[in-house]
């Protein structure tokens, strides 16, 4: 527990410091590199929250693909010498962001969250660790029993609970919609940059 707290605070300082750097640093290229630091720190948060699959996706898509695209764009547009100038709305924008931050923190602290109870927490942990693969080896059965899945039905449910089962099962319509959206966005980007 204490180790997790230390890692959490290190990641928090790293991600917030790097995020401040992204918006405040003069050099655009350095800002893009600091953005990669933020992405990797958020991947570390995902590992702390036992969302390992999302951490891998975060590193692959954000720190890999998106960061490379942005760095490419910065180099191709050759507007680096102007740097990262604020526009004339930067004081109202800072005020708005500070007010929103105060409201968000007040909501997060004051709300009475319906937290998972002790037994449920152990069960949820077991389901979240089965997120990537389906649990089926004999060792998994033992760990499921330890996690408090008493009956046969519950155990099969937890064995089948995985991100893939949810994505292709309950969320299949949004899944198809988002794949269509991605296809449309890529075709649109190609049409935009096509030489005339």
């Amino acid at each position: 527990m204490i180790f997790q707290d230390i890692v959490f605070w290190m990641l928090a300082v790293l991600s917030i410091g790097a995020a401040l750097g992204v918006v405040l640093v003069k050099d655009l290229f350095r800002a893009a590199l600091l953005l990669v630091v933020v992405f990797i720190a958020v991947a570390g948060f995902f590992v702390l929250l036992s969302a390992e699959f999302l951490a891998v996706v975060q590193v692959l898509i954000y720190a890999g693909a998106i960061a490379i695209l942005i760095i490419f764009a910065i180099m191709l547009t050759r507007d680096v010498q102007h740097g990262n100038l604020p526009n004339r709305y930067h004081i109202p924008a800072a005020t708005l962001a500070a007010v929103l931050l105060a409201v968000l923190i007040a909501v997060a602290v004051d709300t009475k969250w319906d937290l998972l109870g002790g037994q449920d927490q152990i069960k949820a942990q077991a389901v979240q660790t089965s997120a990537i693969r389906t649990l089926d080896s004999p060792g998994d059965l033992v760990s499921l029993e330890k996690a408090g899945f008493a009956t046969e039905d519950e155990r099969t449910a937890a064995q089948q609970a995985g991100l893939a089962d949810l994505l292709i099962g309950d969320f299949v319509l949004p899944f198809e919609a988002v794949s269509l959206l991605l296809l449309a966005a890529v075709i649109g980007a190609l049409a935009l940059v096509r030489p005339r």
């Binding site: 995020a19 918006v23 655009l28 958020v42 948060f45 764009a73 604020p86 526009n87 709305y89 708005l96």
Partner: peptide, 25 residues
């Protein structure tokens, strides 16, 4: 604490997206 960190990230992003002149920023 996790949600406060996330809120800080969100608000830094909000400030950056409203107050910068460079579209890549």
């Amino acid at each position: 604490s996790m949600m406060i960190v996330a809120a800080i990230l969100f608000c830094i992003g909000l400030y950056g997206s409203l107050a910068r002149r460079n579209v890549l920023m």
